[in-house]
């Protein structure tokens, strides 16, 4: 059988087919704001490990590790946007993302996410170590498949379990240096893991209508606002003491112990206000404050921990054991 090739007349490509994206839209696909938190927490994990086990890796290897974690995190964001384009279109907060805005075709976003995922994992494995690369691969898989494709649309516990994806970066940073997973990195993981539900539910209380319209079973949509407020308080009761744990376990100093205790109390107070104020503007304001403070809380804890390690102040005086 012979194949006859025919050439049809030249035609123009519509913007919808070609995509109107420029480089900035591809950067938006990497969720730069989420990426900044990923980079920061991974960097803290890496710095803490480097000061506790000096000489294990060259600073340039550390830089490569952070770069790979950032790109891997961004890639999982692109995969998330590829899969979620249908609901992003419905929600006000996400309607301007590159795919619903028609700037990037879904296939292009998928290819972009997959290529960056593979590249970041391989480079991290070849140049730093394979445990860190394995953890990065698991993180991307967890966020893109377990959270985005499965949990997000099926259970109100979506962000509780899915929060693990956001909690892995400091553990990867730690593993890049030490080649191991230890109690210190597990604590850094747990702080973010337990912090994620109250942080996200505070936002969900504010964006309840959006999630409802998009059919995403966030806790306030499915179980109601009252249950969400109790859950925020409950998780905050776990986060506050967990935030102090690095001092109790001996890898943070007095400054961290004091700061994390104060921050923990404020975190609890913010959660209690969300629990107590249930109607109208004061309720919305309390949820907004909880959301904003939760970001500051995590940033401050990690920043203080890193500063102590860089300044050599991570050992508590002996009266604290």
């Amino acid at each position: 059988m012979s194949i006859v090739e025919q050439t049809s007349p030249v035609r123009a490509l519509s913007d919808a087919e070609f995509g109107t994206a420029d480089v900035r839209d591809y950067i938006a696909l990497l969720k730069p704001r989420v990426m900044s938190l990923v980079v920061f927490t991974a960097f803290v994990g890496l710095v803490v490990a480097m000061t506790m086990q000096p000489g294990t890796i060259h600073p340039f290897e550390g830089f490569i590790a952070i770069l790979c974690i950032a790109i891997g995190g961004g890639a999982s964001g692109a995969l998330n946007m590829w899969y979620d384009a249908d609901i992003d279109r419905i929600m006000k907060r996400t309607a301007t993302r590159p795919i619903p805005a028609g700037k990037i075709a879904p296939d292009q976003a998928l290819a972009f996410g997959l290529i960056l995922s593979a590249a970041s994992i391989l480079v991290l494995g070849v140049l730093v170590n394979w445990l860190a690369a394995g953890l990065l691969a698991f993180t991307i898989f967890f966020y893109a498949v377990i959270y985005t494709m499965w949990l997000k649309r099926s259970t109100p516990q979506n962000i509780v379990i899915g929060g693990a994806a956001g909690a892995f970066p400091p553990m990867i940073g730690w593993a890049a240096v030490t080649g191991s997973v230890t109690i210190e990195s597990i604590i850094l993981f747990l702080i973010i893991f337990m912090w994620t539900p109250p942080h996200f539910w505070a936002l969900a209380l504010l964006k309840n209508e959006d999630y409802k319209n998009a059919g995403v079973p966030m806790l306030p949509v499915v179980a109601g606002e009252a249950v969400t407020r109790s859950q925020i308080l409950l998780y905050s009761l776990i986060v506050a003491p967990l935030g102090v744990a690095p001092s109790l376990l001996g890898f943070a100093g007095l400054g961290y112990a004091i700061a994390s205790s104060i921050l923990g109390v404020v975190f609890l107070l913010a959660a209690f206000r969300v629990y107590a104020l249930r109607e109208g503007d004061p309720a919305r304001k309390a949820a907004g404050q909880m959301f904003a403070f939760s970001i500051f809380y995590l940033f401050a804890l990690y920043a203080i921990l890193m500063a102590e390690h860089l300044l050599g102040l991570e050992m508590l005086p002996s009266i604290f054991g």
Binding site: I3, V4, E5, V10, A12, A21, D22, V23, Y26
Partner: peptide, 25 residues
Amino acid sequence: MTQVSEMVQLSEEQKKRQRKRSIAI
């Protein structure tokens, strides 16, 4: 069997965007 291969023509704006993306890559 006949296989039709299509020729496409990019507009100047599309070429410019493609060039920017190529430089980024």
